[in-house]
Amino acid sequence: MVDSRSFLTLSAITTYPKEDGKPLYYVIGLSCQVITMIEIDPQICTACGACEVACSLYREEEVFTTMRSSIILHREERKNYYGVMLKREGEVLLGRPEGVEVMKEGESSDTGGGGKPILLREPCDNCTDAMCVRFCPTGCLKEV
């Protein structure tokens, strides 16, 4: 049984011409891939920002920076309001003290937290054994 986040991929389709010149199609490989997604539990986040550097390293491989990540830490410091935003394909996952909300690309959040131009970043590519999860010290980020 494949869950709703799974999809089937035809890993290769090759065409061999028949004698009459019409193509024959052979499915060479059929695989079932379960997409890993990152979930956020904002209640246990401590705003350490390790996820930004970890994801950036995954994307850039040989540097430490905060500028390449699909995830951005948001903090309003004086009132200690903080959370993380994760860019996915076409949407942004907001993990804030109020809970988790999906904001469609281009929409505004009514309570702040969607402010930065995260849309310039690459979306999360649902990698497995994700660096952001491995280096999240609290378990706030999980692969599901």
């Binding site: 281009g106 402010g115 930065k116 310039l120």
Partner: peptide
């Protein structure tokens, strides 16, 4: 530009977000 808040501007018939400005500065 990267620090801009959650504004959107309608310029002509098109909506522009802060990231468009950040894109040019980048």
């Amino acid at each position: 530009a990267f620090g801009l808040q959650n504004y959107q501007w309608k310029i002509g018939e098109k909506m522009y977000d802060p990231e468009r400005l950040a894109y040019f500065f980048q």
